[in-house]
């Protein structure tokens, strides 16, 4: 049930990578030489930090480097998760078609929980209000030929928690951890 691995890069992380990831847990320091500052807390120099981060970005361990925006604070008040029950053999094709629309911000195939939850294709659509989101959903259904497939639109009511996921323990505790980021 693993994710489709889309490239052939070496994804292994060594103990120094783990220390670096732990040091970056709270984000990048806001100083002129942030990678040197991270290096100081991870016990390596700036050049090594830069080289390791480039490698992680290339291998896909790091998806992206930059800011994470709270969409609600930017005025995107309507946030909908749209779910479809698509035939398994068409999931990849339809997932790619749905994802190709620029107003779709996430698109996943997930395991169903039968019989209670038949849906397996998920996408997120944000808009400044619910009507705009509904218009985008209608557009998507036509554009991707999804009329015959059952779907539901779930708007969010309240956000309780939004933080970057924490993958490893703070640096002090990871010093002895191996590449498995175990625990």
């Amino acid at each position: 049930m693993g994710l489709e691995n889309t490239n052939g890069y070496d994804l292994s992380l060594d103990e120094r990578d783990c220390r670096l990831i732990a040091a970056l847990q709270n984000g990048l320091p806001l100083v002129p030489h942030p990678y040197a500052a991270i290096g100081a807390s991870a016990g390596m120099n700036e050049a090594e930090v830069i080289a390791r981060l480039h490698r992680m970005l290339e291998s896909g361990v790091v998806k992206r480097f930059g800011v994470v925006v709270r969409h609600h604070e930017l005025g995107y008040r309507a946030n909908a998760m749209v779910v479809w029950d698509v035939p398994d053999e068409r999931a990849t094709e339809l997932g790619q078609r749905v994802a190709s629309h620029d107003f779709v911000t996430l698109c996943y195939r997930r395991a169903r929980c039968l019989p209670d939850w038949p849906y397996n294709l998920y996408c997120m659509i944000h808009g400044r209000d619910r009507n705009l989101v509904h218009n985008k959903v209608s557009y998507l259904i036509k554009a991707c030929d999804l009329q015959a497939l059952r779907h539901e639109v779930l708007f969010s009511l309240q956000r309780f928690k939004q933080r970057g996921a924490r993958y490893v323990r703070p640096a002090a505790e990871t010093a002895n951890l191996g590449p498995a980021v175990g625990g």
Binding site: G2, L3, L11, L13, I21, L24, N26, G27, L28, L30, L53, M56, S59, G60, V61, V62, K63, R64, F65, G66, V67, V68, V69, R70, E73, L74, Q162, R163, G164, A165, Y167, V168, P179, A180, V181, G182
Partner: peptide, 20 residues
């Protein structure tokens, strides 16, 4: 002010060996 929730790397959790 909370417009940005984070500034730094976004990881592929599955590739880090973690669960998501």
């Amino acid at each position: 002010t909370g417009v940005l929730s984070r500034f730094g790397p976004m990881y592929h959790a599955e590739r880090l060996g973690g669960g998501l």
